[in-house]
Amino acid sequence: MEAGSGIAVSARGLVKTYGALTAVAGVDFEIREGECFGFLGPNGAGKTTTMKMIYCCLPRTGGDLAVMGLDPDRSPAGIKARIGVVPQETNLDTDFTVLENLRIHARYFGVRRREAAARAAELLAFVRLSEKAGAEVDALSSGMKRRLLIARGLMNEPRLLILDEPTVGLDPQARHLVWDRLRRLERGGVTRIVTTHYMEEAAEICDRVAVMDGGRILVTGRPRDLIRQQIGEEVIEMVPSEEERSAIAADIAAFPARVEQAGEKLSISCDDCRPLMALLSEKGYRRITRRPATLEDVFLKLTGRDLVE
């Protein structure tokens, strides 16, 4: 595959094993230039492993992988020069200030001093940290550190930005700011790859997502399409009592609806839940709510409702 083909990353039969343990069990995907692509999945699904293979910090065990048309095994430096990475762990250089962090990072890419200073000023404004330029990194809040990591990941003007759990542990304001900045990158045509287990976040920022579990990709598609295909338009949730539980199956049998159970809770999905909802309230069921279907429903349906440790 060549650069300019419109595909930023493509994988075919990508495998990563550690001895007997299989972290990624043969996945196929294509990430288009300029889109925001999300990998969703519970812990241990293989998301981070897949990302690390893309950014050349983990050699693959098998399969094909091309990043900007290059093979990570053969041209790691060429790939790394053109991508930015925002890691899950905050690994800012605590010996230095905010501005120094950006300059030193640019130096690893061989960016000239004056050019680095200009980019750093621009990116600090972009992530709204200009007034913190001289602050030591340890003095920043976790939201600020996250924003600085994003600015750092952009210092080499990457065509592809990889973000591993970009908003974990952030308060809602900080999270919305990060989302907004990621959307703005779309205008510059920057391809973004995100892992997350916040479904709300995936629906908010991703053009397409792949749901992973146990090292495999279960489905790939636009969030809206996946919801429609896997769940439907709406979901009725209820926590039935003992006697309600025995009666409910018969009551909803006449409707085109699917029922899933998670612990005490029943989720009933349907394209138009209004008639069923009317019937259930008429029959005197209590504690029932109707809401639009979400990506979280898709995620839970596909990856199982049991708690994953």
Binding site: K80, P87, L92, D93, T94, H105, Y108, G110
Partner: peptide, 14 residues
């Protein structure tokens, strides 16, 4: 502890 190595090896510096 500081993960400085991790931060550097995602750049062209191996």
């Amino acid at each position: 502890h500081l993960k400085t190595y991790d931060a550097i090896i995602v750049t062209p510096v191996g």
